[in-house]
Design a protein around this nucleic acid. Structure first.
Lengths: 228, 228
DNA sequence: CGACAACTTGAGGCTGTTCAACCTCCGTGG
DNA sequence: CCACGGAGGTTGAACAGCCTCAAGTTGTCG
């Protein structure tokens, strides 16, 4: 699926390629491929071999580990500008996770061989990739910390507080970008448990829940219930 | 603590620097610093700022997240040739973990500034760093999978099977490089639970335990008890 | 030999899961 | 216009697995 219309422009908009020389960017654009993924479509599956990386141009993608029993564990969500599939590519190993589009998405795919070539000529690109990988390593460590050392309430609260929020007159508001099912899986909880935790926080007067929107009345008070 | 004796030689022995030009290696060696860490000594602490990376020359280092209640969660172990502290350095964030020497160790420390310079001149180095980060991202994902989707027995078994083993007449043998306390923490279990699991496997005739040495009678049978 | 750390074993409790029912919101088709 | 159906979400009761705490055992090193 690869029309090659304005890929150069598309690439230029991504943080990773921002500092790149025009010439090199055009060379990359010439070999980059647009991939359209419809909602619910798998971009790749666990076990498949990685031969390149994906950059999200528009849309929303999730990485999740499938399990034989049907339940899955969500590892991460990816938004426009983010890269995924790079770790396994550098390792020459099969994917550990499924990648699924959460909405109709436009991805850019770059072949391993061309990427390596670009890295060799553009140290800034290498740095960006190093930062991108580091970022995700950092997030994963936080997830491991949260699963191993925190209770369900602490996990939900610390996750709430980490979300970007906008101020309103009754507190600050945030909202789930995805279904609560997926949030629960990301936090290592069952949907039932997440629902109960949110209920507890609600009757404690700390938050207000309305569908996917959550109003945080008192962020400081929430922080407190992390400690206790 | 940096005598600068044969750092060039030491660096050359590490996979990351193997392909590097002599000139650049000597430049790095000139600014690299030897760090000796005695057993139980902390190399860095959570919260401190990272200004460079560490490479293990000799010894054994663990990364662990400390928790207010005193228990800690072991994230990873590092052996000679491995790099740590790079992710936070690239991100310019404070350490998330403590780094502690498990035995008297010799580390090489390279300042961020010099490392960036080396990356810019030596694409092969960037590639090695990318691979190193990818490797650890991969391991962390496996850990997350194991904590979220597997029972205590499955975790222990899959860990046993992933260890390097040498053949003996009664099966294949492996041995803990560190105390069972640390293994338990790495697997996200309490020491008590690990002990009980090993006991179960022993009375099931699947393994034989002798201190830190474990004899695996039938690897296939072990695999079976992963599924059931 | 004594002291301390590492490890084991047992009993009991708690957190989160499982399973099942129900509810609510929507889009669809009669 | 309303009945239907299904997905996403909530609630309840009972259970299971792992943890906690406490005591006992083994091993190791002065």
């Amino acid at each position: 699926m690869g029309r090659k219309l304005d890929i150069g422009e598309l690439l230029r908009q991504q943080p990773v390629f921002r500092e790149m020389s025009d010439e090199l960017l055009q060379r990359l654009a010439a070999v980059a491929i647009q991939v359209r993924a419809a909602k619910h479509q798998l971009v790749f599956r666990r076990g498949e071999q990685a031969t390149g990386i994906y950059i999200v141009a528009t849309g929303h993608v999730k990485l999740a580990i499938p399990s034989p029993q049907g339940q899955e564990k969500v590892i991460e969500f990816f938004r426009p500008g983010q890269i995924f599939g790079d770790a396994v590519m550098f390792l020459d190993r099969p994917y550990l996770v499924d990648a699924e589009a959460l909405e109709d998405s436009l991805l850019i795919w770059i072949d391993k061989h061309h990427l390596y070539e670009a890295i060799d000529h553009e140290p800034a690109l290498a740095r960006h990739l190093l930062v991108s990988l580091s970022q995700r390593l950092h997030f994963l460590m936080q997830d491991i910390e949260s699963v191993n050392l925190q209770t369900s309430t602490q996990r939900v609260v610390s996750w709430l507080l980490r979300q970007p929020r906008r101020a309103t007159d009754a507190g600050t508001q945030t909202s789930f970008a995805v279904s609560k099912n997926l949030i629960a899986s990301k936090l290592g909880l069952t949907p039932e448990t997440l629902s109960r935790v949110l209920h507890q926080l609600r009757i404690a007067g700390l938050i207000q829940v309305e569908g996917r929107d959550i109003l945080i009345h008192d962020a400081d008070a929430l922080e407190q219930c992390m400690a206790g």
